[in-house]
Amino acid sequence: MSSSLEKNMLILRSSDGEEFIVPEVVAVMSKAIKNMVEDECASNTIPVPNVDANILAMVIEFCKKHDESEAEAASDLKTFDSEFVNRGQEALYDLITAANFRDVKELLDALCQNVAEMIKGKSVHHIRIQFLGYQLFEILTSNFIWNIWCDRDFD
């Protein structure tokens, strides 16, 4: 099977068994995969546990775009990034864990910036209710505890 592939292509297998064929330059944007390739401990098929096909496809899309557009205007890439990361909460969480776990720095930066924009200027109450799904009881108790813990914080 490996012989049928071009030399610089890699196969990534998601946690639910789907396989993606990607150029090596794209795959090694993930530091974790890069290390595996460099140490030559990877056969052509690299398992990517904890990341399902859906998310893996998104990550690959992002890496491909960044690889292609290295020469392109930075502003185009910015627009792409901001559109790319503009997703629902759950996808965002999955993407962040994937980017963190696979160590894809550009993606992690873009995602974290997006999260920062989302929570900027919002109160802790608001964030708990909107993003964390806290109930009233939890807010009361946790607020009480954290306020004691964080008494010495300046604000």
Binding site: Q89, E90, Y93, F131, L132, G133, Y134, Q135
Partner: peptide, 12 residues
């Protein structure tokens, strides 16, 4: 209990 409404992992 603090994960997102759907029960799956979330923002928290």
């Amino acid at each position: 209990n603090g994960s997102s409404n759907g029960g799956g992992p979330g923002f928290g």
